[in-house]
Design a protein around this nucleic acid. Structure first.
Lengths: 163, 163
DNA sequence: GCTTTGCGTTTGCAATTGCAAGCACTCTGG
DNA sequence: CCAGAGTGCTTGCAATTGCAAACGCAAAGC
């Protein structure tokens, strides 16, 4: 497992660089790395860190993600059409907020499913085993409290006694 | 301006790990890295390579992209409101649920922003053109009622971020 | 008490990254 | 033919990554 797909990332970089018709030293300067190192990267002799990769992407004016996917560092473009996936990918939320949001969403799904089964008899039997089946524990209610209170510090206790 | 906050990636990982209620050794095993190294990463003493970062993301069951963005390795030019798009596109939600979920999400965004700005004091609250500045009105709390299986005490405290 | 189990952390050490300096080659042009 | 400038490539070497082993600490278990 020495060189899994390191070669492909190097080939990809070289391809992009030649397509842009710039030399190694030019790209190296633009990316802020040394030319010999870039040479080794392009031939798969070195496995560049994410930081370097990101700078190279900038120097090539291509998407960092494209490079990461090529490097096998991102599975594949995860479809953001899914609500849970989108919530998980959102960096503007705290971990606690994320978890609360996901649980609320799943509770909504469950609630809606129950309603649908009451009105129409054929229901989708999508059984997600993502999280627990229980209703929201009280700690999430505590997290929701800032809605009712004033703006400002929503305070959430994360302590758990049960073990 | 190499990296705004290298430590933030470690804090983010630790946050996510504690959110998932797993130990360092568990996550380390799941991610295929050593526990001491994970410890150093979480405290910002080491700068993990993209490969390690990707494995940690897998071990945490979170999006690799989220982690890369936190690490400052991907520009955050991704549409930050993918969550809203996903919610709107979800056919398994009722219209009311959809609206509530979106409002909660936006409140979380606002809350988080306030928290982040509280740390750095020179911050103005600029009001969005989208919705008001108020927290969620009580009608949304009513919508959240199904969660209230057990009415817990409201005491909540922000997670400890002591060194 | 005192051993075990689990937690996060600290400590050397092999392996790797990433670079400065230099190498080999080709093309221009004097 | 020999400078000069362009290309990509090889070579030591400091700095860093990432890990195995060991540490200190707290909570059970005997």
């Amino acid at each position: 497992m020495a060189l899994p797909k390191v070669g492909s990332i190097g080939e990809y970089i070289r391809e992009q660089r030649q397509q842009a018709k710039i030399s190694m030293r030019q790209l190296a300067a633009a990316a802020g790395v040394s030319n010999p190192y870039l040479s080794q990267i392009e031939r798969g002799l070195r496995k560049p860190s994410a930081e370097i990769l990101n700078q190279i992407a900038k120097g090539l004016h291509i998407s960092s993600q494209a490079l990461y996917v090529q490097a096998g560092l991102i599975e594949d473009r995860e479809p953001p059409s899914d609500v849970i996936t989108a919530i998980r990918a959102d960096t503007h939320l705290s971990g606690r907020q994320r978890q609360v949001l996901i649980d609320i969403y799943e509770s909504f799904r469950k609630e809606k499913r129950a309603e649908d089964e009451q009105t129409s008899q054929n229901a989708h039997l999508r059984h997600d085993s993502e999280s627990g089946d229980e209703p929201l524990p009280e700690e999430y209610l505590a997290a929701l409290e800032p809605f009712a209170a004033s703006t400002g510090n929503g305070t959430a206790n994360q302590e758990t006694k049960e073990g």
